[in-house]
Each structure stands twice: as structure tokens, then as C-alpha cells.
Design a protein around this nucleic acid. Sequence first.
DNA 1: GTCAATATAAGTATAAATACCCATATACGA
DNA 2: TCGTATATGGGTATTTATACTTATATTGAC
Lengths: 216, 216
Amino acid sequence: MQKHTFDLIIADDHQLFRNGLNMLLSTIFQHITIREAANGTDCLSLIQKSKPDVVLMDIDMPELNGIEATQKAIQLHPDLNIIALSMHGDEAYYFKMIEAGAKGFLLKSSDIEEVKSAIENVMANQYFFSNELLKKMVDHIRFNNDEKVKTSVFSDREQEILELICKGFSNQEISEKLFISKRTVDKHRANLLEKAQARNTAQLIMNAIKHHWINI
Amino acid sequence: MQKHTFDLIIADDHQLFRNGLNMLLSTIFQHITIREAANGTDCLSLIQKSKPDVVLMDIDMPELNGIEATQKAIQLHPDLNIIALSMHGDEAYYFKMIEAGAKGFLLKSSDIEEVKSAIENVMANQYFFSNELLKKMVDHIRFNNDEKVKTSVFSDREQEILELICKGFSNQEISEKLFISKRTVDKHRANLLEKAQARNTAQLIMNAIKHHWINI
DNA sequence: GTCAATATAAGTATAAATACCCATATACGA
DNA sequence: TCGTATATGGGTATTTATACTTATATTGAC
């Protein structure tokens, strides 16, 4: 797998982390050239100069953070393989890294084997998510029933009306679509609020999405 | 890897598919016992009788579908390794399979190597998502800007108010929290609607979540 | 120093949502 | 058959949101 030479950039603001990872990767990959950047701006310059095969990009960096650096880098080189590298707690930013165009996603708690897999995968034009991150995502989906909103079961009619509400229709418009009285829609909507344990439309939709009562 | 004997169930309502996959897996794994189920109910009985190591579970099955079968199976055997197996178009049900407790996720368009990886991974207590599915998920996140809602940039204050709206607070309550006039909140909210190209609260929140303007 | 964006606030008006009350018909399961 | 859930619809009232308008002070960029 690691027969031909390839270039890699480590972008992270902690020198010790960069140096250590550099050492580890140099041991694993025989023919590798590693460059280091301490922030997003330096990383962009390095990308322009050295045309790397892979970039390991920290999310939290000074000057230009990993998300912005990834956006700009992907604009210039859409096929560049960028692997996001973050700490626990940065999970909220993974969506933004995906939007920016990163192709691999590692936590800093990963072991070096996983980093190796990630590099090999993205170079083979595949996505890579660290197992720990997948577990976090899965757990988030499975166990976010924290607010005791039970897995509410709406009736078919309620489900239908919920979906129309989500599309932005008013009760009046829904009643015309379904050929029923607006007052009936009012009532269904009130029942939806009660079942969803929501005070208003905003909470109804937040809960509906959190608990996957609707598809987005 | 495949040294010791292990048991596997293929649950799918298409006999040809079951038989073919059975043949393929028998070739790949030397010491494997494969049982077949044509629907969710049969699958549950087989699980009770044979205590399998892995179940390949189709989502769309008669009598008891894959989601319900997975729920019941995981209730009885929380550590059972269930791999969801679905066709294109069933993607909306993956969330439900995750909630139900499946640990691997394959598309029927996967090649046999990916099935092998999935089986090995879940038996090693890891999650497995097929690369095609990851790509779909990533593409969904990256390219769902279909309604020309540009990557709206809200001001800090607007962002703050958006998050309070999502938590279910009324403009009156928000104004009290932020020590500003309700009319100011009214105005911010109107600006939010305009920037989000939404007609009402429901659409505002749908767009906010779709485009990750807020974290859920 | 000017321009643009933002945060602040208000007037006025209508539309929509929410919160209670009530009733009737239907269907489905114990 | 009896009860529960559901779908339908209405009365009344209040609260909330939305749509227009205008205005001022501040901040930051160029």
C-alpha cells in the first residue's frame, strides 16, 4: 500500500503534537514527506507550495481555524484529501468540516493504526470516520431521549399534519389541502403539541427532528 | 480472523438473495453456520433457538419488518450483532435501525468484501457503515443547499435569538432574558425569517437544522 | 469620514397560534 | 358490548407572530 512516495501536511497549533505524530507516521510509512503547519494560514501556503496528497487538519487553530482553512483549500483543490483531527467536544463542528469538504474524521484519542487506515482510505478515494466518532454519532441517535419525551406515536393523520407544518403551511392552508375544517387542524395541532410535550411550534419541530418523527 | 466457528442468520424475504449471499459467505468464511429467515418473525425464532453471532437483517420484510425485529431482538439480546441490509431509498429508515440497535449498515449494492468487513468489525465490537452509505450521508450534509437558501450568516445577536426560539421561548420571554424590548426581538425575528427565506417559525427551524445554523 | 451593517425601539394592523370549553361519529380491541 | 382512541367540527378568548412603516445610535470597514 505504501509503495510510492507521498506528501502529507500536519496542521496543528501544538508543536509537541505535530512532532510526535510526525515521528509516528515516519515510522509507519516508508516513503513519506511530512510538512508541518502551526495554523490555518501557514497550512494554506504549504498546500499551495507542496501539493500534498493528504492533510491532517486540526479544527481548533489560531489565525485561520481548520474549518475555514478546509473551505479555502477545497475551493482551490477540490480533490485534496483532508482529514479532520479534533478533540472530544469538537463534535459539533464535524458537520461544518463535512460541509467544508473534509473526507476523513479522526479524534485525537485515536490510535496510530486508525490514523494509518484513515490516510490509506482517503487516498483510495474513500471516506473514513474513526470508530469512536461513529460510536458517538450512533449513541447520540440512540440515547438522546433524555427529556423523557417518550417515543411518541402519532396517528396517521397527525403525522400527515406534522409534515405539512414542517413544510411551512399554516393551519388554514393545511385545511384546504386536506379538505377539512381549519378547526380540525387546530385540534390536531394541539394534540401534536401535547404528545410532543412542546409549548409551541418551535419546540414541536425541534422534538420532531430530534426524535426522528419526521425525515429531513 | 475466521478461525473459530460462528453462526450467522440471513433475514430477507427474497429467497434468491438469501441463497446467493449464503453461498458467497460460505466460500469466504471457512467455519460458518448460516441459517435463513424469510421474515422478521421467523428471524426472531431463529435467534432464540440458535444464538447467532451475527444477523444480516433486511429492512423491508413482510409480517415483521427489520426495524421491529431488531428492536425485539436487541431487547432480548442487547449484545447481538445486527447488520442492517437495505436497498437504495431505504436511507430514511437507517436512523430507526440505529435507534433499534443495529451495529452495522450495508447497502445491497455493497460488494462481498464490504460484507466481510462488516461482519468482522461488528464481531470485534466495532460499528460498520458501508462506504457508499457514508458517502450518501456526507453528500446529504454537503449538498442539501437545494432550495437556494444560501449559507446565511446571522449576526451574533440573531444567532443568540435563534437558539432561544429553538428552545421554545416566546419573543416576550426572550426580551426579558436579554433585557431588551419585545419589539426588538420582534424585529430580529423578522430578520431571521427573511435571511432564512422562511414564511414562519416552522420553516425557520427546519432550515436552521438542515443547514446546521444551530446544533441539535 | 463616510458608508453599510447592526442593534435598538416603536406604531399599527392583521394573521396565526394557543388554550380552554364542548359535541358527534367511527373504528377497533378487550 | 363497552371503553378508548381517533377524526371531525364548533365557540370563545387570549396570546403570539407576522407584515408593513419609521427612527436613532453604534460599530467597523474602506
